[in-house]
């Protein structure tokens, strides 16, 4: 494979990988921590620890059960 073909192929692969990673992080809720940090930075808040943050999200889930269908 010559370099001028490998370039676009590689960049397409990188883009696909980034897309999958973005999707999985959004879907699983991992990205919520990044959003929170960005929010705190934008508003000059002191963020809580990740442990504390995830604990609160888990408590929320405790109160709002999700249904799973048949």
């Amino acid at each position: 494979m010559t370099a001028d073909v490998a370039g676009p192929v590689r960049s397409a692969a990188v883009r696909a990988w980034r897309g999958v990673r973005w999707y999985l992080r959004e879907w699983s809720g991992e990205a919520r921590w990044d959003d929170y940090l960005a929010h705190c930075a934008a508003h000059g808040h002191q963020p809580v620890s990740r442990r504390e943050f995830e604990r609160r999200r888990a408590d929320e889930r405790e109160r709002n059960p999700v249904s799973r269908c048949c």
């Binding site: 919520r32 929170y36 929010h39 808040h45 809580v48 504390e52 609160r56 999200r57 929320e60």
Partner: peptide, 8 residues
């Protein structure tokens, strides 16, 4: 997200 200073 809407966050308070204490977290979500």
């Amino acid at each position: 997200g809407t966050f308070t200073e204490e977290g979500p």
